[in-house]
Structure formats: structure tokens, C-alpha cells
Design a binder for these strands. Structure first.
Lengths: 237, 237
DNA sequence: ACGGCCCTCGCCATTTCTGGGGAGGGAATT
DNA sequence: AATTCCCTCCCCAGAAATGGCGAGGGCCGT
């Protein structure tokens, strides 16, 4: 069992293209005896990428209908750190219910476990396994393989980051301390006047920092600069 | 070996207070025979939290000097997804070198491995093991226990999130689709004019969305609203 | 020692955002 | 069936942010 996990992860680490990741999800599906395995990544300013075992019909419909907006699984993963069992989620709204019904009839399992993954620069991904199963057997399955799934999710994401043209290292130099201060205060709701007062400097000086940060980040305006800094992890709320 | 890992993780999962996490790092240190084990978390609008085996002198000095700003380990973890071996980092600057020297004489090992962890709402943490060792033996150690360390880091962070008064679920109702559109475009650098054009609505209507989102999020201004939405995972860049 | 980046300050004109009014139709929840 | 929320539109005036110019002292790495 453990030996098997090692070999699966080994395969993942040797993957050299996105096609290999596609193979990986199929292997994983067969190994764990589930119906579907899905890896889905959202990278800032990059095409979303997915390796999955769902049929193309469901995928197209999902995209066309922009189901990510109402999919409780996606919503849940955005807000949590731990893996999410689909049953724990809030399916009470009408939209969620009809979505679930459609998903199940499209071949998605009634049970599922999704593990959220976060990377630098605001990268976000989900790794999901889904199956048709009763509550008990599914619970036994997830409890038994949670650690495995976490590791697999990690390595899968690592490879996806590698193959995406995501620059391993961020582009330019970083922000200066003052620039960080300035953006942090703005991100926390201070106006320029308040921020300059807080820092004990003139409002103009503050503007210079914001402008410098804006240029470094390649941002169009202050709000954009704050957003970039946040998702690059350069500042924290 | 694997049995031992399970018991360690089991202990972690049973932890019921931060004191237990402090015990956990000591147990881990002893188990793996390293010099230090450190968990350090930065949560939005919350006191940073750490469980560590460093002596208090070094910790105080680190905080006092604000070494996080120049510590290449911290910088590196902010920008990477994979665990970072300290040797891979850039220690060329004068500040980094003197910092390293001071750290080593304070009892921090010359070798170290830090795994970055990211949670929702911009949460960030690092899990670090450090030891005095030669390159070879250290490399053997990290290669052999990487998977363990990833899992431990994950569970450690999960517990830390639990004990921090971080609300597992964000408050208030969520944003409407249009509000999400609006904030997303602003976060991506569009001005109000551009955003309204992109959405094919009047600029005033866009303003209504922004205003509504601002109120829902309890934000002071647009930039603040975008920052909150981003770090709550309501929008993505 | 030099260049480069960081910190600090000032003034002016233009664009953009903010805050306050009011109004109607539609969809969903209760 | 009623209520609540969502989407859409309009006007106006004051507040705030932006863009561009210039300038000096300090610290750090080559």
C-alpha cells in the first residue's frame, strides 16, 4: 500500500509534460477505485489548467454555464484550508441543488472529497476525487487515504506549476519597506491622508511610495497595485 | 517508521491547545534528531503565532531587528510552493550573510528545510526543521523525510488555524455575481470607466455594485473592498 | 568612489472616485 | 403572495487620487 503510494508519487515526480499529468489522474482513479480524479488549477493571468477524468460534455457545460460561480465545492475550497467532503457543504440553495442533480446525471459521483491547494502569487488549485458510494464506505475511504491524497495533491500541483509557464521566481525586485508600509495601509482601508499621518510622513512622500510600488508591480493604479501585492504575498492584510 | 509518523500526526490531531503544539515541535525535534523545529504562522489581522524550539534570545532578537524583512528563508518561502532547502537560497547580500552568521552563533543549525504553507484569507505559515550537519547527511535526511514533513506541516497548520480565533467560515452573505465581476475587474487594474465598458453597463451601475460590495464587506473604500475580497478568496486576480 | 536605490519634501492641473438623491423590472426565497 | 435582494439607469457636487516636474541626503554593493 505504502509502496504503491511511493510509486505513484514517483511517477508524478518523473512527469515531464501535461500529458503525463493526464495519465496520472487516470492511474490514480484506477488505483483508488474511484469514479473520477480531477486536478484543476487557477493561476493568475494564465489560462486555467485541468487534468481530469470527467467526460468532455460535462466539462464544456460547466464552463459554458460558469458553474464555478455557484458550485459549493469551489466556494468551499476557496474559504477553507482542510480538504472538503462534499457532504459537509451547503447545498440548500436552489441553484446548488439543480447543479448537483445535473452533475450526478453527468456521471460525477454523489460523493466527493476536494483538497484546496494554494501557491505563491495567488495560485489556487483543487484536487478532487469523486465516486458513487454510500456514506459509510465513502467515509472509510476518505479517512483511510487522506494523507495520501494530500501528498498527491501537493506533487500534482508542483508539477502543474512547473509545466505552466509560471516563473519559478517572481520577476522584478521586491518592494522597499516603506512601499510595503504604504500598500499595507491602503489595503487596510486607509486613505492616503490617513496613511501618511499614520506613518508620520507627508502625503506627497506616501504618494512617491505608492507610485514606485505601482511601477515595480506593473500596476495600472493603486487598487491594482494593492491587489497584485496581496496576491504576490508581498503584503498581508 | 511509518507507524511512528502516524502516531505523531495522531498526536497533532488530538492537540487541543497551543501548548500542545509547543509540545509537538519538541517531540518532532527529538524524533527526527534535528536541532530545531519551528512552526510560524502569519494570519491576517491577527497576532503572528509560532511554536518553536529556538531559545528566547534568538527569537527576541529576530523580532526586534525585524529580521523577517531580510531573512532569505522567509523571502524564499513567500515566493515558492515547494519546500526550500536553505542552501538553495541567495545568501550573497551583505545583510543576509551577517544575518546567517548571527543565526548560527545563536544555535540555529547551518542546514535547514522550510516548507511554505498557505491558507485561505492570505494566511501564510512556514514549517522548518534545522540542524547542524554536513551537506551529504542533510540531503539524505531531507530526501528521506520530505513527505513526512509535508504532512506534518499541513496538520500543524490546520491545528494552528483552529486555535487562532480565525473564523472557519467567513461572516456575512457573499457577493452577488455582478459585484464579483466589478471587484474582479477593478482588482485587475481597470478603472471604473473601463470596467463598466467591459461589462457593457453604465458606469453608474458599476458604482452601485462597488458600493454594495463595499458595504457588505465593511470596507472603507474601493481599494479596501478589493483587498478584503481578495484575501477572503471571493475574487481571484 | 561611483552609480543605484531608498527616504523625504513641495507645487499644479486634470482625472477619477465618492456620497447623496431617486426609480423601475425581475428573480428568488419565504 | 409578499418581501427581499439583484440588476439596471440617471444627475450633481465635493473629495480624493493621479501624473508630471524638481530636489536633497543617506545607505549599499561593485
Amino acid at each position: 500500500m505504502d509502496r504503491k503510494l511511493e510509486s505513484l508519487i514517483g511517477r508524478l515526480q518523473e512527469a515531464s509534460s501535461r500529458a503525463d499529468l493526464q495519465d496520472a489522474v487516470c492511474l490514480l482513479r484506477d488505483h483508488y477505485g474511484v469514479d473520477h480524479v480531477v486536478y484543476h488549477s487557477v493561476n493568475q493571468s494564465e489560462e486555467p489548467y485541468a487534468a481530469l477524468t470527467y467526460g468532455p460534455d460535462w466539462v464544456e457545460r460547466y464552463i459554458e454555464k460558469d458553474y464555478a460561480r455557484i458550485d459549493p465545492v469551489v466556494q468551499g475550497c476557496y474559504q477553507r484550508f482542510q480538504p472538503v467532503d462534499w457532504k459537509q457543504l451547503d447545498w440548500s440553495s436552489r441553484a446548488a441543488r439543480s447543479f448537483l442533480g445535473e452533475a450526478i446525471s453527468a456521471g460525477v459521483g454523489n460523493q466527493g472529497l476536494s483538497v484546496p491547494i494554494r501557491g505563491p502569487n495567488g495560485q489556487f488549485a483543487m484536487f478532487t476525487v469523486s465516486a458513487r458510494a454510500g456514506d459509510d464506505s465513502w467515509h472509510r475511504f476518505t479517512a483511510g487515504h487522506l494523507g495520501d491524497l494530500l501528498l498527491i495533491a501537493h506533487y500534482m500541483n508542483q508539477k502543474a506549476l512547473e509545466f505552466g509557464n509560471a516563473p519559478e521566481r517572481v520577476p522584478g525586485r521586491q518592494l522597499s519597506p516603506r512601499e510595503v508600509d504604504a500598500l499595507s495601509l491602503l489595503a487596510n482601508g486607509h486613505s492616503r491622508g490617513q496613511a501618511s499621518e499614520t506613518l508620520g510622513i507627508s502625503e506627497h512622500t506616501l504618494r512617491v511610495y505608492i507610485e514606485a510600488a505601482r511601477l515595480k508591480l506593473g500596476a495600472q493604479n493603486t487598487t491594482h497595485a494593492v491587489a497584485l501585492a496581496l496576491s504576490h504575498g508581498l503584503i498581508i492584510l
